[in-house]
Computed example of a mutant assay.
Amino acid sequence: MTTDLQLEFDGTAVLLPVRAQPKSSKNRIDGIHDGRLKVCVTQAPEKGKANKALLKVIKDGLNLRRSQIELHKGETAGLKVFRITEITPDELHQKIRDALNKSG
């Protein structure tokens, strides 16, 4: 497991790469794997349910408002990118560190 999260900033938002783990036993942020934030959700990947659950886990885990976060890429893939506005990459890194310290 690497701790080097590959965040991109497109000028207006931070692009957060995520590895989705659907059908998990718990909803949680599970660390950083291969440069991506690993997020586990209990929902199965059908009809967008897992994507909605992922959004909620990331929003709650990183203490974001719903209006700040959207799925940017990977609607049907396990590797996704979420777009997060009104935050700098440094602030997002800190929120991720805080979330991982709480869960671990």
Results as ranks from 00 to 15, higher is better:
Lys23Ala: 14
Ile87Met: 10
Lys52Met: 11
Ala20Gln: 02
Val18His: 00
Lys49Pro: 02
Arg65Met: 13
Leu71Val: 10
Leu100Met: 11
Pro89Arg: 07
His93Ala: 10
Gln94Val: 09
Glu91Asp: 12
Ala44Pro: 14
Ala53Tyr: 05
Gly104His: 02
Asp98Ala: 09
Lys73Cys: 04
Asp34Ile: 05
Arg19Trp: 14
Asp30Cys: 11
Ser67Met: 10
Arg83Gln: 11
Pro45Ala: 11
Asn63Cys: 07
Lys52Phe: 07
Lys38Leu: 15
Thr76His: 13
Lys102Cys: 10
Val18Gly: 00
Phe82Trp: 12
Leu15Tyr: 04
Val81Thr: 15
Val14Pro: 08
Gly61Ser: 07
Ile87Gly: 01
Val41Thr: 14
Lys95Leu: 12
Arg65Ile: 09
Leu62Gly: 06
Arg28Gln: 14
Lys80Phe: 11
Asn63Val: 13
Ala77Trp: 10
Glu70Cys: 08
Ala44Gly: 13
Arg36Leu: 11
Leu37Asp: 07
Arg66Glu: 13
Thr76Gln: 12
Gln68Cys: 07
Leu92Phe: 00
Asp34Asn: 13
Lys59Ser: 13
Lys47Asn: 12
Ala99Ile: 03
Ser67Arg: 15
Thr76Ile: 09
Arg97Thr: 13
Glu70Thr: 10
Ile69Asn: 05
Phe82Gln: 07
Phe82Arg: 09
Leu15Val: 04
Lys56Val: 14
Ile96Asp: 09
Gln94Met: 06
Ala20Asp: 01
Arg83Ala: 01
